[in-house]
Amino acid sequence: MSHGGGHKWGMAIDLDRCTGCNACMVACSAENNVPITSEDQAGKGRLMHWIRVNRYWQSGWPRPESVHIPVPCMHCGKAPCEPVCPVYATYHNEENLNAMVYNRCVGTRYCANNCPYSVRVFNWFDNKWEGPLDEQLNPDLSVRSRGVMEKCTFCIQRIRRAKEQASTENRALRDGEVVPACVQTCPPGALLFGDLNDPDSEVSRAVRNLRRFRLMEHLGTEPSVTYLKRVKGGGT
């Protein structure tokens, strides 16, 4: 990596490639011990997903067309969730990640209410994983208890592991070495993750694309997730 200084993690999501298959949501839940919510609870606004896929119908019958927009935590540069936390449970770290400290969280839910993207989810209950699902819980993460807010971490455990591997081999982190679960699983490769401080990284090249836009950018949140607009056209 050519640049000096630390990392600035970011994501690019190419909507031209997203088919709305929801594989990212499944991978995320499996990787991050995210509880599965019942339909009944989801109807009460208690759905727990760290990434969701929004669907927007563009046209109706007989040629229904839709656009799918995967929405993880934007890890905003100026995150609205951070200043409202009374116990400093959510803060910004040196690598441009919006971090969440579960043990500090007292469950005021101010952060979720102040998040324009609605990506924060709250543990309303102590969630149980029925056997044999409890055997597949990821040991790299804690299982959050009742009364705690949680959200996408850009798979911090995977970032940590990649860094460790690089430092063990006494070299710099390579582009593409940190792969969050959603990025890894996306069949058409719509999601990209990497270091925005490295001008040559795949994600840095993607965010220079002319199709770029960011969700609700007018709010001044400076999101770390950049979308590439879907361009309707024939062929390829």
């Binding site: 040196e94 400290v101 455990q157």
Partner: peptide, 10 residues
């Protein structure tokens, strides 16, 4: 060494 919460907490 880093004292960022996410260095050690998971």
């Amino acid at each position: 060494v880093s004292i960022d919460c996410w260095t050690c907490h998971k």
